[in-house]
Amino acid sequence: MSAPHEHQHQHTKDNDDATHDDHLHIVPPRTYIIVGTILLIFTALTVWASYLELGVFNPVIALFIACVKATVVVLFFMHVKYSSKLTKLTVGAGVFTFLTLIAMTLADYFTRAWGRW
């Protein structure tokens, strides 16, 4: 599945090698190539989609594609798919707070004019 290196000292606790399998998952280059290609395809897709007349769905599609791309980068390039629960939780906390900031601020802006016309 990956380079020959890391299977040599597997699970021998306290070895001083950096390649602990349980600790450090080495993602093979094949995955990176696939992911990179997907990202480029999605880039082309989002540019193409922006030329279509889709009304409100234009931004929805653009953001959806951006989210997919970001997720792929986070999961594979940034190794979150293979990381500890703590790392996953950290990413989740960041996204959650980010959305809180945006959603609760916009909640004010979208309801400001209610009942005033």
Binding site: T100, M104, A107, D108, Y109, T111, R112, W114
Partner: peptide, 18 residues
């Protein structure tokens, strides 16, 4: 603590619903 900040702005013209 992250969900209450607007109470500093009640008199500043923010939406009455929020």
């Amino acid at each position: 603590g992250f969900f209450v900040w607007e109470h500093h702005m009640f008199i500043m013209g923010v939406s009455s619903y929020s």
